[in-house]
Amino acid sequence: MNQGSSPLMSLQKVSVRYKKYRTLKRAQYHQVLTDLDLDIYPGDSIGVIGRNGAGKSTLLRLLAGVIDPDGGVIDRNQSTAALLTLQLGFDQQLDGRTNILLSGMLMGCRREVLEEKMADIIEFSGLGDAIREPVKHYSAGMKARLGFSIALMIDPDILLIDEVLGVGDETFREKSAAILKAKMASDHTVILVSHNTHTVRNLCNKVLWIEDGKARMAGETHQVVDHYIESMTKQELN
């Protein structure tokens, strides 16, 4: 898809290592990602799979610009990437409306844009008059719905998602999954980190399989997922 155009973001031989501890003589490191290459083209829906601790979350942190790599280059081409986060920076004492502004602004939205979208956000959350109450009076489900409604309003060039397809009650879960699916199917660019191969098969046009911080396989979804499942089954049998 769109291979002719230039990538929104491209990672070349990117490495990340975390400092575990420091002895008197030298620091000990934990290598999380090694020489990872990734090109993200407009309209891509890339699934990232791999076992726990393979480096998937670190990859999202890199893309979101939370950390810089220790080696290699990230070419951002002026595009923005943001993690889909729920209830980011919520203040329990303040009402829903104020939290929409607070959380939205932390995610990088301008205040005017948020005021404009306010009615839509409130309607999507389905909170009604409760929006004027302090968030501390909300149930967990209500908070999750408000958080998700805000998160959906942010519109970065690349949306990063870390397995959050199930929030709130059944109706809201369906509604939000539908919206996400629509986003991913349209020309939005999305990176989805997931354990669920079923979700990845349904939603992604490309898949990156990471193992021990290295790209084990990358390419067309079904091919990569098939190999991944095969490898997992083999390991379980051993």
């Binding site: 979101a64 939370v66 943001a82 993690l83 980011l88 932390l106 995610m107 990088g108």
Partner: peptide, 8 residues
Amino acid sequence: NLIQLIDV
């Protein structure tokens, strides 16, 4: 928690 999620 916040600074793990966004570049602020």
